[in-house]
Amino acid sequence: MMETTLDKDLFDKIDGIIHAYEHDRHNLVQILLQAQDLIPRHYIPMEVATYIGEQLGVPLSKVYDVISFYSALSDRPKAQHVIQLCKSTTCRVNKYQTVRDVLERELDIKMGEITSDGKFALEYSACFGACDISPAFRIDTEVFGNLNEEKIRQILDRYRGECNE
């Protein structure tokens, strides 16, 4: 399943990114972030890490140092949509646990798991600056706050409703 996404088209696009960043190894983090955005299931496959490293003249170990260090980068496939629930301080006093319980029940998975259809991944996150609308989660880059059971269901339905590409 994964292999089909690693086609020539993807590598062409990655070339485009590397080119826009002038083949400069100082832009490794930026290039990895943008490449990851192109890849379904939000991760950097080994082939892509190797390719970017080669193109920039950065050793693979350094590429993986970066991928493993930053929370926004992953070396393992996640899901079509990644739900990140904040469990930092403000969301703690605003009882993120209630949100977690609804999410786990609705998706029938536990935190840290992926739904069997590969549609949703559920994970915790540190504060992402949405404390004024806490409790909050992010789905990919979209932030949702002031959550209650009703609202969470509506949000999930919206994402469930979209067709698989």
Binding site: S88, T89, T90, A126, C127, G129, A130, C131, D132
Partner: peptide, 11 residues
């Protein structure tokens, strides 16, 4: 970078 939990004023 505004990473301090409880902070969103730079946002």
């Amino acid at each position: 970078d505004e990473g301090e939990p409880g902070t969103f004023k730079d946002r």
